[in-house]
Amino acid sequence: MRKSLVYLIPFLWLLALFFVPFLIVFKISLSDIALARPPYMPQLDLSEGLAGIRAFLSELDFENFVFLTTDSLYWKAYLSSLRIALIATFLTLLVGYPIAYGMARAPHHWRPTLLMLVILPFWTSFLIRVYAWMGILGQEGYLNQVLLWTGLISEPLSILNTNTAVYIGVVYTYLPFMILPIYAALERLDISLIEAAEDLGCSRTSAFWLVTFPLSRPGVTAGCFLVFIPTIGEFVIPSLLGGSKTLMIGKVLWEEFFSNRDWPVASAVAVVLLLILIVPIIFFQKNQQRQAEADA
């Protein structure tokens, strides 16, 4: 009896506060906007019994989803989120791999410190880490000051409020998620394999591409998913660093809800976003499972 309580309590909690809310989102995505409180209709009226339920169900339709396909704002936002996430993931890999590689080759007694230095930013506020870049990238920001002072540029660069700033923000905030799995893969790498490749006549570069990189692939895959998946629905980075031209679906959903107060459309946007995310999440799960089986 007591044993079942141990899982029943968290199970029921998640059922009520994670699963049921999704059903509500789905239901509201089939409703219509209304000038009422709450601002959507139909409302379920149980006092009329079965007839009430039937009337309620007949009012639900997929109109909002049709609307998402007809208004180009939405599909452009989905595509643009995917593109930004893809480019940002690639850039994070480009920045993160050499760091992870350097960490894996550092002397043993340095590694715990280096590892802590990578994890530490994760404990500091995400919002503050994004905010820090607003002062750096602005028109009169520190970066422009330095570049103007050194004479590398004569006109200040406009980086803040562009997609470039969003890329920098994503790379900066998600870098630990990329470094850690790659480091874990590289650290387990058997050094004698590389020595063997070099003995057999490989140059250092070709030994890297033929031996080291393929063996670190699981870490690279895991890191890429860990950056890619949350970036698609990102809200804080595009709204602080991005400009009016930066289209990301998280921002669209937010504005649809808070500015337009169109809850049914916001819910439909959420349902479609969830459907898009399921594909990479399943791939990620498969990758993790394969990894766990390979370790066992």
Binding site: Y7, P10, F11, L14, L15, L17, F18, F19, V20, P21, F22, I24, V25, I28, P38, I229, P230, I232, G233, E234, F235, G250, L253, W254, F257, W263, A266, S267, A270, L273, L274, L277, I281, F284
Partner: peptide, 25 residues
């Protein structure tokens, strides 16, 4: 159960926030 434990970790915050708000209302 294990799905509901891992799903919130990858769920975009805008969706979690929206769904909880709609529940509370």
């Amino acid at each position: 159960f294990s799905g509901m434990i891992y799903a919130p970790l990858v769920m975009p915050e805008v969706i979690t926030g929206l769904s909880l708000l709609l529940l509370f209302i």
